[in-house]
Design a protein around this nucleic acid. Sequence first.
DNA 1: ATATCATACAATCAAATGGTTGTATTAGAG
DNA 2: CTCTAATACAACCATTTGATTGTATGATAT
Lengths: 117, 117
Amino acid sequence: MVVLEFSDQDVNRLFRALADATRRDVVRRTLVADVSVSQLADSYDMSFAAVQKHVAVLEEAGLVTKEPRGRERMVRGNPDRIREAQRLLDRFEEIWRSRIDRLDVLLAEDDPAPPDT
Amino acid sequence: MVVLEFSDQDVNRLFRALADATRRDVVRRTLVADVSVSQLADSYDMSFAAVQKHVAVLEEAGLVTKEPRGRERMVRGNPDRIREAQRLLDRFEEIWRSRIDRLDVLLAEDDPAPPDT
DNA sequence: ATATCATACAATCAAATGGTTGTATTAGAG
DNA sequence: CTCTAATACAACCATTTGATTGTATGATAT
């Protein structure tokens, strides 16, 4: 199994890409089916170039891929990257849970003398 | 059960807040234990005011809360917000899975005649 | 062959972001 | 009471972001 490591920059790009409603919509739509850039552009109230840039941001974040199809570029959502984002959030949850565990250990102490920090 | 709805803006703020390594570190540290703003500021190679701003961004995103403790402000990570971020990502996964399901239905068709869209 | 559609990309611009320093306020320590 | 530590907040600045328009290129259709 390949454990792909994420640099801080990668994680920044990933969450940054998700921090825009248009981009989230693009991801949703392209998870359902491949959609060309121009089809996407028709859906939003902004220029073609603007949509193109949003797709580029998603592509750099790994959230979509582009595949040439004739004169079009079909955009495809990448569910793996979503899962990787989830995994990153899981780690925060783990940290939280480990805090709880440590508190439980304290509460379970027979001798309630506080440990010196 | 209170179903709190998220506006696009809320979601933007949430992911934007996570798109910075310093802020992610603050969240991790404050999930483990309450930490004052000045304690945080000591850890990073930037001014107190800069750290203060990062904490403010996290607070607006709901990822941390601040509680006055004497002359300090203790920062506390909010695990609920992390879970809400996870829930948002879950929805993307669901969309992906529903696509698979639809493909399965197509493959399971006895009569392979394509449905008219 | 030509016109057109889909895309790429550069230049430009306003607004947001991430940092700084400086000043003010407030709470605790001496 | 006075000094200091912790915070808040404003002003400022450089860089990035999100959008625009304009120009160029490649693939399709006529």
